[in-house]
């Protein structure tokens, strides 16, 4: 009330002072670059370095130039596989671990702290460490079953291997988010089901799982945004060329090469902006599907 009265009395300078630094830095260094990148994607420079408007020409080039479109579709396909593996392995394993931790067994705090450790490590370090571990030179993988199936140097297993490394690193995030919402489910719900004679299996699928759907949605959208923005892991384990023969190329590495160049190939900021524009579109579509499709439909089961 006091603040309201103050508002009517004089111009609220203090509100501006409070908001100004955050809004300024955020607008200048986050929102503006995003919009400006989209603008730049509509320009191009010629041999004499004169910049001129080309409309959607960069996008057309990306989609129709034989080499570029090949790389773009390849990166998109790899990125989709990368995402599907996260959804099918990382999130179910995260849910299983969360469920086991929610049973309040002795030492569960220690377990969850240790299992979360890889998530805080740098992706660069994780990528390189795994590269060494899987290297035939070191020969560790030959001692351990299953590990010998993972090979970063072979075209048809490199992408799956990289995806599993990423799953290994980030499984802690869905685990924590699922754990938080399992804990929040009121005990009476479960008690009531137990009185009715339901076993743990039925209780999980009939009561706990439906109540976890909102969290599953958040986990899904976070996975999507993270995956379609991934770069560091591929760059550190496989290099900017995302080898062998582009089999681990993701949109992030494709963006980097297009914009920054690699080896003898020069970079092209305008074409690079267009790649960023496509990535932005993909991420926005994912977020909107979540906001309007998923979140709205599950509102009625939320607590």
């Amino acid at each position: 009330m006091t603040s309201m009265r103050k508002l009517n009395r004089k111009f609220p300078v203090h509100i501006l002072v409070f908001l100004f630094p955050a809004v300024l830095i955020y607008t200048v260094f986050m929102i503006y670059p995003m919009i400006d990148s989209l603008r730049l994607s509509l320009f191009s420079s010629d041999a004499k370095n004169v910049v001129h408007w080309v409309g959607l020409e960069n996008y057309r080039e990306l989609l129709t130039d034989p080499t570029l479109s090949n790389r773009l579709w390849g990166a998109l396909k790899n990125n989709l596989i990368f995402f599907v593996i996260h959804m099918c392995v990382q999130n179910p394993v995260g849910l299983l671990l969360a469920y086991l931790l929610s049973l309040k067994i002795r030492g569960s705090v220690v377990y969850r702290t240790l299992i979360f450790t890889p998530t805080v490590l740098s992706v660069v370090i994780v990528g390189f460490a795994w590269k060494l571990i899987l290297s035939p030179l070191w020969g560790i993988s030959s001692h351990i079953p299953l590990l010998n199936l993972m090979n970063l140097g072979v075209e048809n297993s490199a992408l799956i291997t990289l995806s599993l490394i990423s799953v290994w690193q980030y499984v802690g995030i869905p685990m924590m988010l699922f754990l938080a919402s399992i804990i929040r489910i009121p005990e009476e719900f479960l008690e009531a089901a137990r009185v009715d004679g339901a076993n743990a299996w039925t209780i999980f699928w009939k009561i706990q799982f439906p109540l976890l759907l909102p969290t599953a949605g958040i986990v899904g959208v976070l996975t999507f945004v993270g995956n379609f923005n991934a770069f560091d892991l591929v760059y550190s384990a496989q290099g900017a060329l995302a080898g062998p023969s582009f089999s681990t190329d993701l949109l992030g590495t494709f963006f980097y090469r297009t914009f920054f160049g690699f080896q003898l190939q020069g970079g092209n900021p305008y074409l690079g902006s267009a790649v960023a524009g496509i990535m932005l579109l993909i991420i926005l579509v994912g977020v909107l599907i979540y906001l309007f499709g998923f979140q709205r439909r599950i509102e009625n089961v939320e607590l």
Binding site: Y26, P269, I283
Partner: peptide, 24 residues
């Protein structure tokens, strides 16, 4: 409105503005 404006950045990765950021 300002709250929504500031929340956009939670979902949209800043990397996508890199070309312009470097120029700036």
């Amino acid at each position: 409105l300002l709250g929504i404006y500031l929340a956009i950045g939670i979902m949209v990765p800043i990397r996508l503005g890199t070309v312009s950021l470097l120029k700036m």
